[in-house]
Simulated scan of single mutants.
Amino acid sequence: MGVVVSLEDGKQRDASVKPLVDKTRGDMERVNQLILSKAGSDVAMIPEVANHLISSGGKRLRPMLTLASATMFGYSGDFHIKLATSVEFMHTATLLHDDVVDESDLRRGRSTARMIWGNQASVLVGDFLLGQAFKMMVEVGSLEALDVLSTAAAVIAEGEVLQLSVAKNMETTEDDYLSVIRAKTAALFSAACEVGPIIAETSKAERSALRSYGINLGLAFQLIDDVLDYGGSANDLGKNVGDDFREGKITLPVVLAYRRGSEAERAFWREAIEGGKNDDAALEKALGLITKYGSLKDTMARAEHYASIARDALAPLPDSDEKAALLEVIAFCLNRAN
């Protein structure tokens, strides 16, 4: 299989997460130490499984968002460290669970925990990390922060079940799909950003601004991931191009191509996604149909729409290094597909 849809026509932007990394560097060192400490257990398999994923090279964007969203309002205590660690543990737990549900073999270019230790260990270690996350939330002592993060945990689980209900169903609508990613991905981005202003004891308007920024950034982030699965590279994804297709996942480029196709083309999608006929030749054809109907460009346009909402959410806030870094994250997110 040699065809990958080119995305090089998109506008190039010199954007990165470096400003956010630089701004949160000291606090992230403390978060990383706490991660290693809280992932420890007398049950040897727990740190083995947890550290396999924790050390796999992810950017840890979500905890950095928590740190920046607290310090941008002048917060100077220690609670943002525990909340950022809680956010990362919630994210790691969902990845462990996702890989079991999706029967994934690779995660960020490495064998998934389920491939090494089995499904049961992956699920149970994910549960352990969620337990540790909630212990740290309680230690912070903010009922509002606990409410936001616990609500996010419930919404993420709902999103997982909703995804199961639409899995391999080619009648899934764009609204159905957006509901899935709003719950599965955007909810944690939103919570990660909102707990910062909560512990900084800011106004409702400032808290609402960060919540809106987070949820719309999360939607844009996931839509760009969807684009990359059909038009990126393994380096961009941390997995193989076309993995979503081979796993029979319904993503927005597929929804759009299916809706816009002829009856014969829709029959192909049903065979590939619902019937599991998704070999390299089928992937080639899928890429051709996605190109024919402009599915990637339109998915990009949706991502840019949510990115614009995220920018507008921050607009009323006073200028600061943290605000500039958060705005740069939006551009970085879009730039991954250009």
Rank of each mutant, 00 (worst) to 15 (best):
T94P: 05
M115H: 12
K82L: 14
K82E: 14
G77T: 09
S104C: 04
F89Y: 13
N119S: 14
W117V: 12
F73M: 10
V87W: 01
D105Y: 01
H80T: 03
R107P: 03
I54L: 15
G77E: 11
R62D: 08
S55V: 08
D98I: 10
G77Y: 08
R62S: 06
I81D: 06
L96P: 01
I116A: 10
S56W: 06
D98N: 13
T66R: 00
D102A: 12
G74K: 11
S69P: 03
L96S: 04
S56Y: 01
D78P: 12
H91T: 07
L67A: 01
D105W: 11
P63T: 12
A121L: 14
T85K: 04
H91K: 10
G74C: 13
A50C: 07
G109A: 09
G57K: 01
R114D: 14
K59A: 13
S86E: 05
D78W: 07
D99M: 09
T94V: 10
L106H: 07
V100F: 02
A93H: 01
S104Y: 10
R107E: 04
L61F: 14
G109M: 11
A84M: 03
V87E: 05
V87H: 03
L95K: 00
L67G: 08
T94A: 14
E88W: 06
V87Q: 02
R62Y: 06
A70H: 05
M72K: 02
G74I: 04
T85H: 02
H52I: 00
G57N: 02
D78A: 09
E103C: 10
A121W: 11
A68F: 06
R110K: 15
D78N: 15
S56L: 00
G77Q: 12
I81S: 08
G58R: 08
S69A: 13
K59C: 13
P63V: 09
P63Q: 06
R60A: 06
L83V: 05
T92A: 08
L53C: 02
M90F: 15
P63C: 02
K82F: 12
V100W: 01
F89A: 03
